[in-house]
Amino acid sequence: MEVPEIDSARCTFCGKCQEICQFNAIAVLPNAALTFPELCHSCGGCFLVCPELALISKQRRIGTVESGARGPVRFTHGQLRVGEALARPLIRRVRQEAGEGGLTIIDAPPGTSCPVLAAVLGSDMVILVTEPTAFGLNDLKLAVAAVRELRLPLGLVINRSDVGDRRVHDYAARENLPIFLEIPFDREVAEVYARGGLLVEELPEWRRMMRSLWERIQEELSGTRSEKLVAGRGISTSATLRTKHA
């Protein structure tokens, strides 16, 4: 991301850059000026106000973006550098790789705060993966509130659907949240996942489940976005927003 560096030959220490910076990333002393790049949000305000053009644009590495492919599926992921606080710029960068057309599936971070929003904004549908436990229900309610704030259609997948109680189901019924799929607990799933296997390749039952989930998603989207589908552009983006305990 872009961060400022001060050209001390030009700087007159007027302090305008420090004044506009809301993130305390610049400190101007009587005859020195310092920047703290790790606090910078890259808003560009300091470049706009400097009367001496004494700020030099520098790029700071906050993580890495890697892309690859497996068969017809393109894959991109971002990895924040350890010790780096701001995930949002990296998430935005990863999402740029998606491009237009085709289907994009986003694996979103847990929680409900800024990185989640960066992953979800601009998508066409959100799938919330939850489990029927006290923690699952609590976090699901928070996630539903966040998605509703964005006015996006959403559906639930209840994982380990037979481990807890019925409160998540009751909540879904009360709130009119469609349950797209329920997946019972299965030790084999945990084992395949543990060794890094792909469930749809190793367990035939999962192929069937995922296909029915996908059909259900298409059905829901065609109800709300028929124009887009008819125009043949398909669904540009679809986000998977995981709640924390899923």
Binding site: E19, I20, Q22, F23, H41, C43, G44, G45, L48, V49, R88, L117, L121, E149, L150
Partner: peptide
């Protein structure tokens, strides 16, 4: 408000 990061550039300028 969901996209605003609170940088204050618009407010200042």
């Amino acid at each position: 408000p969901l996209l605003c990061e609170g940088c204050g550039v618009c407010w200042s300028l």
